[in-house]
Design a protein around this nucleic acid. Structure first.
Lengths: 222, 222
DNA sequence: TAGATTGTTAATCGATTAACAATC
DNA sequence: TAGATTGTTAATCGATTAACAATC
């Protein structure tokens, strides 16, 4: 299966219970969660599959069906308690905790990612930023971090227990960096480089490439 | 239809001829193109659906089927000429030209986007960067650009003929900014803010949100 | 009670794949 | 010619939707 910015190589070991839930359903849950939290911020307490569907441009049936894979979270006649459903989705997605993330690449994009304040509230914390450039190593970045030497990746992984990496490196370096990440034991990679990586099947790779989105859009333009 | 970073509200007017080609197929073409160009950079001249499929982790049948919507680009027994197929895909995607793009938001992420060198070779040029912050307006950014006042959006659109915008603004400002973009006549928006925008159906919106990818990945983690 | 909305079923719709004749 | 690979068909597989009984 190919996904990009939404495409990613899927397929990996799952626990029995989860084996049958389609990956495409899992992919929508974070969007549901994000929307519910915005509603909660608005002071809303209850919503319905219809309201959610209208917000997201999808059918209410799809939302109910998606949620039904995991349990019964609503009340007939009333809808869903927003806080409760957020909590449930966070549990399902395993973001009822904070995951350490290692960022590779301290260029302009890496710096932007390191500066981004909202990861923490979503379940993620960037615990290390690494680069190969001796000019950059040692410099401060993000919230009280210092750029580390990519050669010390193994130590960073061991110290942090990170399973997830973000790659903000040039395309020509990406496969080599990815190999090192896999070697170091990471199993989840979010790749901003415009290249499809080769990785063992136990490693999940997802991609973010604005060009893919632009080119998708221009198909419909004149 | 919901897509994110791969999800996006689809559905819009298309010319007759294209009406029947699934959007999901269009979404894969940029990835094919990207891969073919990497092969070309490697000095390769010919490839096959099987080789491409192995690179991308998808079936050769899917690649052949996808391409068959647009014509016959290969030779039995030989495969595809890489340069030729690149050219064809560029035509199909309408990136055999340069599209002007307006970037809104000159924060850390906006700056990274403005600095990105590779848009031009993919069919895009950032022609204006706009922000509301008087502290930022007038400052240089990207390749010889100056941050413009978002209030002058209308003029920028008129001057450049841009149809595409990228939003790198905080979530709380995103809907307001999007409204202005639509008002100014833009019809394609790539949104980095973690929020699903409301927009008229003639406006195509796609999203990039790393948190959505992270949370998708953590579902499979322990 | 009347109205609203869930969770679920079955039908529909659409996408992917396997297979193969055509042919380079 | 023999081997390889395309483009296409038909079958399979999977996802979405409409509809509705259950029930708050």
């Amino acid at each position: 299966m190919l996904r990009e910015g939404g495409y990613a190589v899927a397929s990996d070991a799952r626990v029995q219970e989860k084996a049958s839930i389609p990956d495409i359903v899992i992919g929508r849950l974070p969007v549901y969660l994000r929307t519910l939290r915005l509603l909660a911020d608005d002071g809303r307490e209850v919503t319905s599959s219809q309201e959610l569907g209208e917000h997201l441009g999808i059918s209410s049936a799809q939302i109910r069906k998606d949620l039904s894979h995991f349990g019964e979270f609503g009340k007939q006649g009333t809808g869903y308690n927003i806080d409760f459903l957020c909590q449930q989705l966070q549990k399902i997605l395993n973001v009822d905790r904070i995951w350490p993330v290692i960022l590779v690449g301290a260029g302009s994009l890496g710096t932007a990612i390191a500066n981004y304040q909202e990861f923490e509230s979503s379940g993620f914390r960037i615990v290390a930023v690494m680069d190969e450039d001796p000019q950059k190593i040692g410099k401060p970045i993000g919230q009280g971090l210092q750029i580390g030497d990519f050669a010390d990746l193994g130590r960073s992984v061991a110290d942090s227990g990170a399973q997830i990496a973000v790659m903000a490196v040039p395309a020509h370096a990406a496969q080599r960096v990815a190999n090192e990440l896999v070697e170091a034991g990471l199993n989840s990679i979010l790749c901003y480089a415009p290249i499809t990586l080769s990785a063992p099947s136990h490693v999940r790779v997802e991609y973010i490439d604005p060009v893919v989105h632009f080119q998708h859009m221009t198909y419909y333009l004149r």
